[in-house]
Design a protein around this nucleic acid. Structure first.
Lengths: 143, 143
DNA sequence: AATGAAAATGGATATTATTATCATTCTATT
DNA sequence: AATAGAATGATAATAATATCCATTTTCATT
């Protein structure tokens, strides 16, 4: 999904909830949508402050909470004690290979796994909204 | 693995590291090994204190850290802000269905998914040590 | 364009979870 | 039994997350 499209989706979501638009929130959301890493609140705040120094931490925090609730961001915990936020992938869901030595994170996709997941969930009467698959181990360089 | 067997493994691990045995640690470990939920430090401390009221939080914390390092416990973060500890599964790896409304956690197994994971990892030159698969959504009761 | 109710902001503070500190106690080897 | 090193437990420090509140902004309705 393109950034502009995401901004539209956000606007609809805000409207549907009876909330109001603000320039700060728009800018934070746009900055996040343009980032392509697993960004933490601190990192996002730093980025935002480059152009808009007087934006507060709380606003960034609340914006990311809003985006997460609205399905425009995915919050993740990789075990380093910080929540990180990830953009919706352009091309379907992806999962992670995490090197426990060098911390490198590689993304991958496997349609068949996705399919099996849905089937399994259905078997348990479960409706899946989101999922996380993380493989921890050693990357080729650290082996 | 049986509790008694786990206690032995722990003892070996402690010996191999040149550490010393204590009754507190043994009791905490045993209590954890007997629990079958995804227990948090607070919950474990509460359990432990029923029989041994003067055990401190720090000891429970350190014991769980030790068990995790020794491979006798698995630490997980499901997004509720608390690290939870899980026992080694008796019968191979299992994954989680997590209800984002009532927080109920259901376990499931799917051998085929495991297999596909290994294959995918291999394709990326990755050696998998451990993995997490979590499906977030609504359980049948919260739908 | 002005109004006003509701929402958002941002700086600060509160809360919560995790980790470190340290004096004292305990363990296990000699 | 002596002793060195590890463990304990109460508390303090740190860090991440969540909330508070006075002020400002938004936007539907005049």
């Amino acid at each position: 999904m393109k950034v502009s499209k995401k901004m539209e989706t956000l606007k609809s979501y805000i409207d549907s909830k009876g909330l109001k638009s603000t320039s700060q929130r728009d800018f934070i959301a746009e900055t996040f949508f343009k980032s392509n890493t697993h960004i933490s609140l601190d990192e996002l705040l730093k980025k935002v402050k480059r152009k808009t120094p007087n934006i507060g931490y709380a606003t960034v925090y609340r914006t990311m909470k809003l985006l997460t609730e609205g399905g425009l961001a995915i919050s993740r915990q990789f075990g380093d004690g910080q929540t990180r936020y990830e953009n919706l992938p352009e091309d379907g869901h992806h999962d992670h290979l995490i090197c426990i030595k060098c911390s490198r994170i590689t993304e991958f996709q496997n349609q068949r796994i996705e399919q099996l997941q849905s089937e399994t969930a259905k078997k348990h009467g479960f409706t899946v909204i989101n999922h996380k698959l993380e493989l921890y181990g050693y990357c080729s360089e650290c082996m």
